[in-house]
Design a protein around this nucleic acid. Sequence first.
DNA 1: ACCAATTTGTCCGTATGTATG
DNA 2: TCATACATACGGACAAATTGG
Lengths: 266, 266
Amino acid sequence: MQENHEFSRIERAPAYRLVYDAIERQILAGRLRVGDPLPAEIQLADQFGVNRSTVREGIRLLEQSGLVERDGGKRPRISVPHYLDLASSASRALILHSVTFRELWEASMVLEPAIAEHAARHIDQSGLDELLGNLTAMQAEVVSIEGGKPADVLAFVGLDREFHEILAKVGGNRVLALAHEPVTSLFIPTGQVILPRLKTYRRVLDAHRYIFDCLAAKDHAGARSWMHKHMDDFRRAYELTALSLDAPLDAVSLSMSEATPSMRSR
Amino acid sequence: MQENHEFSRIERAPAYRLVYDAIERQILAGRLRVGDPLPAEIQLADQFGVNRSTVREGIRLLEQSGLVERDGGKRPRISVPHYLDLASSASRALILHSVTFRELWEASMVLEPAIAEHAARHIDQSGLDELLGNLTAMQAEVVSIEGGKPADVLAFVGLDREFHEILAKVGGNRVLALAHEPVTSLFIPTGQVILPRLKTYRRVLDAHRYIFDCLAAKDHAGARSWMHKHMDDFRRAYELTALSLDAPLDAVSLSMSEATPSMRSR
DNA sequence: ACCAATTTGTCCGTATGTATG
DNA sequence: TCATACATACGGACAAATTGG
């Protein structure tokens, strides 16, 4: 050793990432406000002293992290990442990590009853109306199916999902809603498999109705309890289709559940 | 009207986004497997028939979404997004949406006791050892503080957070762990404000100890109940510092809670 | 409605540092 | 050690879309 000095490793972040960090800080510090258009690429390149291509790469990072939104060919604007975007990447991550249906269901047994209870405490007339609209649509589906028409499974699970998302929304707790979103999102493909086999359409509708009645009566204990039953029903149905609780949700589910979010992102 | 035809709107996604979509599909379909190096930019440019710069911008999108990881100056490799990354952007989004402490606390009252219960059911010896290490470290901190030394608040809340994260991990439910992560992450800055004012260090330590005892005894009801008390304690402390439950977590918290994740991302 | 300036999207070519064989 | 491949970064260029008069 020639020296006593210890030099800490110099970590060189690529320039485009420094651009990203710098702009991110400006946004978080409030110097760039939400809704404002992003400065032109040339100007940013001048200010940072880098090439325009480098700036563009940095902006792509901002774009994907949801801090910048591009509205058609127009000027990109500062924005705040919205729940659904985060939730869809969360769902994707969970599937890639091969989470099991058991994990998903356990989480739903924690979150859904709690959300139902919150909803019962905070729901107002407009929320009730929204739920009622959802229920009558689902009622129509069920009647149509029981009348012999081929079941529109996609529409049905869509309504099912909507019901649970309305509940999360009217509960007024965004942290719970965010946690809840990936769970419902991942339930959809599973529902698409289970429903046509077991034909439990009416059973789902009835459960939603009971929950709705509790919400209308501000009976939060009832809402929690019915939701608990509802989710437990889902597990039983899953087991009845001879699927293993501990099998990972496979990649097929992914391609289906990803169809919606990708539409949102453009 | 000259025509009866209705033309659906043509949506022109930029080429760099098409590159992103294409590569993403390859990954999700399993044709590009995790750990594999990404094909060279020039090859991708050839295959897609676009310029290398365009490919690079697409890769930046993949990079930020966690599907591609670059390891120093080496070839970027396919990877799966990890929880912590998602959780940190979730926390950021929640703060930007001005969530209130009440929302945060309500969510924790749902998640933490459930996680404690899961942990009690699934914890093994190595998990207990890990928790014990955390407890003795916190014990040392408390003794030092009570001995008159100035409190190292940062270290203390770090240990506090670690305790809760170990619990989430040993519970073995990754969906719950993911939902839980942003909550603990957002509690940290709040804890940094509360603890030095109320000096409830020992109270936190005691709560953790009670929970640990329940885990060691596989007493899941006890673990749930103690965790419930522990979180309720936190709310009371928050109110005692004359902070309003319904005030949004301000941006100051953000800069602190963002310090950790940014280190992780390089 | 038209025109001119600005800005984004995309492309081409090139130089440099580094990792791998 | 040398050579090759590759990622990073730069400079310049042009078409199309947007913006603002």
